Simulated scan of single mutants.
Amino acid sequence: MSITVRHAASTAVITIDRPDKLNALDYTTIDELSAWLDNASADDSIRSVVLTGSGDRAFSAGADISCLAQSIDAGTAHALQDIVARGQGLTRRIEQFSKPVIAAVNGLAYGGGCEIVEATHLAVAADHASFAKPEISLGFPPPFGGSQRLPRHIGRKRALEMILTGDAVDAQRAHEMGLINHVVPASDLLATALELAVRIERHAPTAVHACLAAVTRGINLPIDEGLAVEAAWFATTVPTAGVRRGLDRFLSRSDMTSQ
Rank of each mutant, 00 (worst) to 15 (best):
F131R: 01
A168R: 10
G146T: 06
R199H: 06
T216C: 05
P141N: 11
L150P: 03
V208G: 01
V183T: 05
Q148D: 15
Q148K: 09
A197E: 06
I163W: 05
E135I: 00
E195V: 04
P143L: 11
E176Q: 11
L150Q: 07
S147A: 13
R158D: 15
L164T: 13
S137Q: 12
T165Q: 12
V183G: 00
V184P: 00
G139A: 13
R152L: 10
V169H: 00
K157T: 10
V208D: 00
V184C: 09
R202N: 10
P142E: 15
S130H: 10
R156V: 08
A204G: 07
T192R: 05
H153D: 12
R202D: 10
T192E: 02
Q148M: 05
A207W: 04
K157S: 15
P134R: 15
S130Y: 01
S187C: 05
L196D: 00
A171H: 04
L194H: 03
T192A: 05
P151R: 11
L221E: 15
A213D: 01
R156T: 08
V208T: 12
H209F: 04
V169D: 03
L189I: 00
S147P: 01
T216Q: 12
A186E: 11
G145S: 10
G166I: 09
E135K: 01
E135L: 06
H182Y: 09
I200L: 13
A214K: 04
A204V: 09
M162K: 07
A193K: 01
N220T: 15
S187I: 02
L150D: 05
A210Q: 04
A186H: 08
D170Y: 02
R217N: 08
L160G: 10
I180L: 10
A207L: 14
D188W: 01
E201G: 06
L212D: 02
A210C: 09
R217V: 15
T216H: 07
R158P: 06
A174H: 07
V184D: 05
R202T: 08
A210K: 01
A174M: 11
Q148V: 04
F140I: 13
H209R: 14
K133G: 13
A186R: 06
L194I: 08
I136L: 14
L221K: 12
E161C: 04
E135N: 15
D167Y: 12
R149L: 14
G145F: 06
R152Y: 11
P141A: 10
Q172R: 10
I163Q: 09
L194R: 02
T216N: 14
P185I: 03
S130C: 13
K157C: 06
R158Y: 05
T216A: 12
F144A: 10
R199I: 00
T206N: 13
G166N: 13
E176N: 11
L179C: 09
R156E: 14
G145N: 10
P142K: 08
G218C: 09
Q172M: 04
A197I: 07
P143F: 08
G218K: 05
T216R: 12
N181Y: 03
G155V: 13
G166R: 12
H209V: 03
E201N: 14
I200C: 04
T206W: 08
M177F: 09
L196R: 01
H182K: 14
G218Y: 02
R199A: 05
E135F: 11
A186Y: 06
S137C: 09
S130R: 15
A186I: 06
A214P: 08
M162W: 08
